[in-house]
Design a protein around this nucleic acid. Sequence first.
RNA 1: GCGCCCGUAGCUUAAUGGACAGAGCGACGGCCUCCGGAGCCGUAGGCUGGAGGUUCGAAUCCUCUCGGGCGCACCA
Length: 548
Amino acid sequence: MQKQIEEFIKNAIISVFSMDYEPIEVEIPLREEHGDFSTPTPLKLSSLLSYSSLELANKLKEFIIKSEFSKQFEAIKVAQPGFINFYLKKSYYFEVLKQILEHDYFARLGMGEGKKVQVEFVSANPTGPLHIAHGRGAVIGDVTARILEHLGYEVQKEYYVNDTGGQIEKFAKSIEARYDELTGKKVEFPSDGYHGTYVIDMARNIMNNHSLDYLTENKRVGFLMEYAVGEMLKDHKEVLSLLNINHDNYFKEKYLVDSGLVDEVLTILKKNGYLEEKDGAIWFTSTDLGDDKDRVLVKSDKSLTYFIKDIAYHYEKFVKRGFDIVIDVWGADHHNHVTRIKNSLKSLNINPDRFEVILIQLVRLISKGKEILMSKRSGEFITLRELIEEVGKDVARYIYLTRSSNSPLDFDLDLALKESMDNPVFYIQYAYVRAGSILKQAAIKGIEIRKADEVNYALLSSNTEFRLLRLLSILQDEILLTGIKRTPHRLATTSRKLAEAFHEFYQLHKVIGESAELEQARLHLVIGTRSALELLLNLMGITKVEEM
RNA sequence: GCGCCCGUAGCUUAAUGGACAGAGCGACGGCCUCCGGAGCCGUAGGCUGGAGGUUCGAAUCCUCUCGGGCGCACCA
């Protein structure tokens, strides 16, 4: 509907003022008295035309009112200082309700038709367990993917596995040292190695299952690298699935080198004039693109930097796999990397606008007013697994989701635990349960749900009922906005509002036991609301509970 | 020093440049013969860190400033 109004106003401006004006903004007002949809376009237009914004608004309104289009609205009003507000007809609400019940109104939207989008998230180094910050990126990425899928994009959720490089080697050597310690050998632990207790656990596991004794010195590290990455990744997958997150694809960094992609990219960069040899290394001349320094791609010892592999990786996403849009979810500490990748895309003749990054700010875990840094169990930073065990997956997901990703998040553990009795998550789930329980009662009493054509929706006439109907009617537009703006945290607010409206309805109105006509109309409203809650819970990845 | 992010109610925070800045928690006061009270209704609490500017309109954009976080590798 939002789109239709935009389109219509655009044409109205062409007809009335014979000018083509863009963009037309149509918003869902914060206050219900300002209508279901509203546009400030006359205010913008007044600087271009010699009318006051109020005059413009009135002229446009006159034009709109005469049209067939306006018949869908109860009222179209001009408001100070020049808004045009649209109030949907009750019959429009009723039509939506009917569509929800009989035509799968909440099905996927068609806007992303045929467009391939990749959302890459988590992609943690497999050198240690996932911690709470990874959880935030994981949920934001997952929900973003779910929303885009709902909008009709073809979405792939990807996890990039850093299975080569210096860090992995260091990790393998740390395990090796622990292994040797366990077998009684005296060794010096690598000074910059990984000290976590999980490294010792892994070494112990190897000792029990896979003896290293028969491997030569240089084969040991190779074996350990592969083994460690495999084990760590297995752990990551397991923890993510506890959070209800399952990636579609795990992309191995190793493949970039083995497949010759890195060489391919280097060749193109050379051809496009972005390579330079200096001090025995190969540099990307990114200063030509506005960077403050050139960046090394191939080190003087011929090994590859992370950067060249990442360039090759993104080249692969766009050119080999043909994604139209790639969205990476990164920790905010990598923000400098964003322009670097965009620059590299430019140098490969790929439009950098097709590449987006959602930066996730830090997460601090707070308990009793103080930040918790270490975990008792592992001696590491609090792991994601521990957090989920502590507060549960739904609470964790919801709390991660309520805050905008570019704002730092204080995850108050006490509050999360206390809230588990009195928590927005349960509030929303409870609304879903209540709706279900009314329907269950109806079934027990043998009440049959009539077809929409046989139900008199006009009996839904209280403010509370209209509020619910209105929320149902604007839900798809709301989700659309959430998807386009890549602001998944809006879902938290949207679903809370809907739950609130339903609880109020539940409190004020009886459904079963009213006159048969009213009973039917309200049952339909309950079914519609339940579908909407179901959609929202699915998008947020929060469990739909039937009983609490 | 340079770059990015954030300062909103006691706490955690929301608000595609729009209309009176919304919620939750906490505090205070009401509501259970009724489909589940994990609920509902109400009260108090804000110069959106500060100062300028752009705009018909600024929490939002620009400049400066004060606080906090992060990043500035032939690490990933």
